[in-house]
Design a protein around this nucleic acid. Structure first.
Lengths: 197, 197, 197, 197
DNA sequence: GATGAATGAGGGTTCATTCAT
DNA sequence: AATGAATGAACCCTCATTCAT
């Protein structure tokens, strides 16, 4: 990639991030391109040098977020850890990203229904793929006798729901910091999987 | 209430329900008043005889939903059950309403950020009050030694998140029916509260 | 049709005519909806109560014009006249409409390429149908031995072209009035069809 | 002209021709400078090194086309032929150019109204001058007794209209080739000028 | 000579809202 | 109690044009 192209890509990324921030703050509709432009110190028209439509912008937010989540999860899957550790790490990683890249992942998780159909399909596919990693881990734990037998699909829904709700209440000023929250969630959500002993 | 007023109230309720349905299906912005009117076989103008603004309509959805949830929860709180049973019943009741009155509660839970500030404050207050019931139960369980000591606020966030995520994946054609889901959730989400024995 | 509907239809027709006028004066693109609205003493938004898009407006101009032309031509075809008279009358009728309903027919004849594909197909079909009447007359004249044998398609193209060019030069202040022009054209354009004697 | 200037002039001509092609295909408005640039493998900005505005580009198309037409007609006028032959040759030459340099002349003939006033005046003047040649021939024919007396202005309008309509229907795959069409038109359009004998 | 980048004016369209009837 | 009609503010998007490099 040439220097020029690199700078252009960087700027586009910047636009996406600002858009994500505003989308997550005000919602897709209420965040106007004017808002986004103003935040970037661009003019409305200028943004269109980098993107094709507001929808595309939303889509890019989704895609970026999902790719980040998937990449991180792939690393975890590849690691040489016991299954219950992988699951906990997966939960913690997800939470870190939800809280850290707040706006980006928040948009992706919370405003899916704003995506037009063709875009949505791509994102839903990625989300399914992502969730499947978690389900794999639960299933594997059951097979290995580490976890008790149960409906892994439901368990994953519970885990996802709990995690994805975080943006609704999280505040940097809260009594727990990121790691503590992540730790708490990982413990709370994995615990019911274990057999009683 | 006079007969007239009664009929008007009834119609207003009808409008709210239809609005809720459309809001939950297409989102607040994409559901136009035209849509709502068409579904009711009214004209756009007529609706304004019963409501003051689209925002108010959204607010009423929220309020109705929250009131339903709160009322049900109050009954449970008043019952003469052990604390862990109350909590499980609370979870089950919530899930029944999420799945049953789908649109109404879905709107309330999923589109809070569309509310304008003055309205939002009222709703947030109700939601807080609602969540406080759950937290009370957790705290009480801890006090009584039924549950282990932990950050009850976090636990409630987890419970709420898991439940409120249901509309995102629930389908009537799924492998579990309502009661089974409710049961599964109640068990899974309360289980980590207990002391190991 | 109820009184209300009638009035609405009337207003829509009015909009179409004003649009046609402006389209023919400034071209489809340069005539803005703002222009059209101003001419009607409406606001831009109001127009959308009657139409769905600017394209539709253009289409309606085309359709109205073609229907007028076709209807008139059908009357002529049905008349009990010798073929060469029918042809001359067709030419005269066409010219009357081009000059009379100036803007409407002018738009239809001159700005076909501005129509989007789905609309264009409909209009092209109508135009073909219209031209076929003329061709039928020429062919019939040839068969009957009134006209000499020649490529009727080309002859019709010539006739059409000559007539449709009129809006480019016609002025009410010109030295010939409508009927004289029509008469001149009919004679000039039909004359070459006859056999020399 | 220096070598530099020559090359620049050549490129400018190239731009005009490509512009003409796109103007005739999509219309003046729908052919964007982006389109034109892409076709030339330039960038949008670069074009402005050679031209001053899109309008100028359109004007140059018109002027080039009119100059070509006028030049050819001057040759014909200067030839030592009988008047009726000159007229026929004029018609044939015009048609050859309409069909051959399709885009250039098509733009000039079909999109005159897109020209801004100052430009239009110049073009209208040229077009008048061009048409006057044809009228001269008709008048001369009348004077000499070759043609019958008639309104030469009208006759020329008919001839022009018929010829300028050709781009609307012409296709290379049609049943007649260029020369045949030209021949047919010349015959058909001149024939009504002659006296019956 | 050429280009990437930015601009800004304006256009079509949508929609909540109002109001006379 | 209901509606047809009208409004206007706001929004997304396009594109000719400019300019520093």
């Amino acid at each position: 990639m040439s220097f020029r192209e690199e700078r252009a890509a960087e700027r586009k990324m910047n636009i996406i991030k600002v858009a994500a921030k505003l989308f997550s703050e005000k919602g897709y509709h209420d965040a106007t391109l004017e808002d986004i432009a103003r935040n970037l110190k661009y003019t409305k028209g200028s943004i269109y040098y980098y993107i094709n439509s507001k929808q595309e912008l939303l889509f890019q937010c989704h895609e970026l977020a999902m790719d980040m989540l998937i990449n991180r999860m792939q690393e975890i899957m590849a690691a040489d850890w016991p299954v219950e550790v992988k699951l906990k790490e997966g939960i913690k990683a997800h939470i870190e990203m939800v809280v850290g890249e707040m706006s980006l992942v928040t948009v992706a998780l919370g405003q899916e229904f704003e995506l037009e159909d063709n875009y949505r399909q791509i994102i839903v596919a990625k989300r399914d793929r992502y969730e499947r990693y978690f389900r794999q881990l639960v299933d594997e734990g059951i097979e290995k006798g580490v976890f008790r037998p149960l409906a892994s699909k439901m368990a994953v829904f519970i885990i996802m729901g709990a995690m994805n709700w975080i943006p609704r209440w999280y505040s940097e000023k809260g009594s727990m910091n990121r790691e503590e929250i992540a730790e708490f969630f990982a413990d709370y959500l994995v615990r019911p999987l274990f057999k009683k002993d």
